[in-house]
Nucleic acid binder design. Structure first.
Lengths: 210, 210
DNA sequence: CTGTCAATCCCATAATCAGGGGAGATGGTA
DNA sequence: TACCATCTCCCCTGATTATGGGATTGACAG
């Protein structure tokens, strides 16, 4: 049983050559190809593909929008994004929206077949540069911690505040008086340069202080 | 000029066979290998490697700790993690801590050489299953939005609250009275099931409502 | 045309919070 | 020893917030 494929690509030449590339391999079957993602949901319903190849930069309805349409109905259908750019914005946007793989057009000839097999086996094929980008972003998200020189006690209390506890509850949980809690919070505010709970909690969460 | 490699792997047998695998290729040079990451910073200083191969599961100082040590000094030195587990926790932990690549031991023979070349060219080699895991996590982080049926106005105000604005400031910015702000916030709290600013802000940020 | 909903406004009160002050007890360091 | 940071406690006051009412308007659906 061949792997059933739908292709979205606005460049006629590339679409044609991709089509023949796919048809060449006997374990792939190209069901249809389109020049934009305008009717992607209908296309899927009619063709029942196993995998979708989606260019990002298309007129009318582009690849990201197409991806969104797909994900609104089909959560697990593998979608491999194709693009000439390794532009950060596009990549991250596609991935946030649930792309399964992401290959640069320059790697198409060497990687496409492999990539299709990989997604069918539950993998996530990416051009190495794309993978690096994702890891970098991921890493940034999780290490950004400016040093405000909060003491351990202050961190605990900020944590508790961030969990939505009132001064009273914090005092109870930490086994200290209400007055002490306010004292700690005063210095937390000073160190963070904020003037309200909302600001403190926001800063704590955004900068991963807790 | 061969690519200079340091290896960390506690299993003697595997360490030996990796060592010979690496020495076999003439574009690689194995500088040294160790059974845990205890002296990783000294090792690096002495050997000046281009790439580090790091097992995760090692006695004394494990791969994640080793990675952390490395990242505290060397921000760009490529570190490829090796593991038998495709266990979510390890993978994500390693990536959060700045791993450059992540390959499963079952793929070592077929992918290792390739992976080393990829990191040297600025890529991020990952076993497909690992890549899928990362994308999935990434995707979750960015789409998790439970529907609390907040109205547009309520979302705006929640946003403003999350930015650290007081009721007064919100009233001013939105051009409505203080009373109206409290009314909106009342219904926001009801819909979110919270009873304080801190809780609301926390929930809004954690569940990406804003 | 009637009901529902979003958005606006108002009133009122108890509780909580922000920010100002001062002060004693640790424990480590210069 | 003297200093300094940390953690603890206290007092006070004005501002802000949480929560309970009730009410009007316009839009939209049935």
């Amino acid at each position: 049983m061949p792997i059933r494929i739908l292709l979205y690509e606005d460049n006629t030449e590339l679409r044609t050559s991709l089509a023949s590339l796919i048809s060449f391999a006997e374990d792939f079957e190209l069901l249809a190809s389109f020049e934009n993602a305008g009717n992607v949901l209908d296309n899927i319903k009619q063709n029942q593909p196993d995998v979708i190849l989606m260019d990002i930069d298309m007129p009318e309805v582009n690849g990201i929008e197409g991806l969104n349409l797909i994900r609104s109905k089909y959560n697990d259908l593998p979608v491999i994004m194709l693009t000439v750019f390794d532009d950060d914005g596009h990549v991250l946007e596609a991935i946030k929206n649930g792309a399964t793989g992401y290959i640069l057009k320059q790697h198409l000839t060497t990687r496409l077949a492999n990539a299709i097999h990989e997604v069918m086996e539950g993998g996530a094929p990416m051009s190495p540069a794309v993978a690096r980008l994702v890891l970098k972003f991921f890493n940034n998200q999780h290490t950004r911690k400016t040093d405000y020189a909060l003491t351990n006690r202050e961190k605990q209390i900020l944590q508790s505040l961030t969990d939505g506890n009132s001064y009273k509850m914090i005092a109870f949980h930490e086994g200290i008086t209400l007055g002490t809690v306010t004292t700690h919070i005063k210095s937390i505010y000073e160190k963070l340069g904020v003037h309200s709970q909302a600001e403190a909690v926001s800063k704590a969460l955004k900068e991963r202080l807790v």
